[in-house]
Design a protein around this nucleic acid. Structure first.
Lengths: 248, 248
DNA sequence: CGTACGGTTGACGAGTGTCAAGGGTAGTGG
DNA sequence: CCACTACCCTTGACACTCGTCAACCGTACG
């Protein structure tokens, strides 16, 4: 749920060690304030983490140990209520930050569980060292604030969706949301793209049931707004029409 | 939607000029990193703004001109969708920040409309000067980041409410939310407190209609969970029972 | 006294959740 | 190569919550 468009560059940490990922991944401008030497120092202290689909990275309530970014794959942020019900409060795609519990100095606990939806590759930095870096580079913190504000904005948009939109609009909005995210990586429109989530996760994310999601997707398909090739691959021809269905 | 408990102190800007507000208001620890002299300089450049109920402070889409805090009263953050539907994405009480559009350097637009619900008194700082202050005091920015993260957390909790909770649970949650907020100012439980919002705003906030809110309040009243004296004054005897109704 | 406004209550219907059955597809083992 | 199974998705029937429409009530205010 980062939102912003980022420059397509390969100038961040974890990049130097990415002999396994030859593709240039979208790297945020978070690192811009850092000096060249600092950047390599950062890379040196970073570590990779690979997660298979379904595996958890952190668990809500655990101590927050590190700050990280997503290299590839998709993850979901799940917030669990006391009574067992859970709600997906956000998704993370390549180049997004994992800093849910991040907050200045002091010890903090994770505020949501992070679970890999597809195979997930992370780049992690120890918190204490990252904190020191923040103290040294105030501009880095400034960018982090930007990011947090952006995320807050996106989250509030989801509030509108959850509070006011119909099932049809929610599903259409979700498709557009994913398309936009995918679009940052590779052109999605007309070519089509895969929904990274299964029906259960989609339902969880937009506050519906599996059945309702399925029915609405069928309706969009029957009405010719989208074309589906398998339950996950979506192509939409008329973006305008889909946006109308989403309530825009 | 600040969330955190703050020390009951009177050490912030706007305080020096508060000859009209003899009561010590809860002041956040945001200003702690500042020197004494800086604090008075900050006070000097701050200005007061009084709003009657219903008046707008900023409008979604406008240029963000200043950073501010609430001195007294209650305001609502309204996010308008393109098609006219609107959703209240947050409330601000005394000592909360108004920094919805805040984001590091550069020009930004307001991401929501702020409307006074009850007579609202604000303390405002020009953006550019506040920005300069941030550059000078990185710790100030760090606190701002803390605050943003906290707000993100609260907002995500509301996502769970909007996505998963029933009408009954939403209304009960809202009452608890307000009680908690009021509690930071003066003890609310057993004494009772006033809901700052009318039915229409409550409905908007928790994603229901006026009628459903009304019905659920009646139900809570009939079931003996709350006592009402007029449509706004609420007292709850058994906090545990109310929490159960809220889904906790 | 009349009007306006906010809140409450009732009747009804649409939209969504629940329960249940059926279909596709991938993976597994014979 | 073909069952067999497991899992996910789809579809249908039905119930129920909540939204809609409408009437009514109480209070504040002119």
């Amino acid at each position: 749920m980062a939102g912003e468009k980022h420059a397509l560059a390969a100038d961040g940490p974890c990049q130097e060690r990415s002999d396994v990922t030859p593709l240039p991944f979208r790297q945020s401008d978070l690192w811009a304030p850092l000096l060249e030497e600092e950047l390599s120092a950062l890379s040196a202290m970073s570590r990779r983490k690979q997660l298979a689909a379904g595996q958890l990275h952190v668990i809500q309530g655990d101590m927050a140990r590190d700050f990280g970014t997503v290299i590839s794959g998709v993850g979901k942020l799940v917030r669990d209520a006391e009574d067992g019900r859970s709600q997906i409060v956000g998704l993370v795609f390549a180049s997004d930050f994992i800093a849910g519990a991040y907050a200045g100095q002091g010890a903090h606990r994770e505020t949501s569980t992070i679970e890999a939806v597809s195979p997930l590759e992370l780049c992690l930095f120890p918190r204490d060292r990252f904190d020191r870096l923040l103290t040294r580079y105030p501009k880095l913190e400034s960018r982090l604030l930007d990011h947090a504000m952006q995320e807050l904005l996106v989250t509030r948009d989801w509030m509108v969706l959850l509070g006011r939109k119909t099932a049809q609009e929610r599903v259409a909005s979700f498709i557009l949301y994913v398309a936009e995210k995918m679009d940052e990586l590779n052109r999605a429109e007309q070519v089509g793209f895969d929904l990274p989530l299964g029906r259960a996760d989609i339902a969880d994310f937009i506050g519906l049931t599996i059945e309702t999601v399925s029915r609405q997707m069928t309706k969009l398909r029957r009405d010719g707004v989208i074309v589906m090739d398998g339950p996950k691959h979506v192509t939409y021809i008329d973006a305008h029409q889909l946006r109308a269905r989403a309530g825009f």
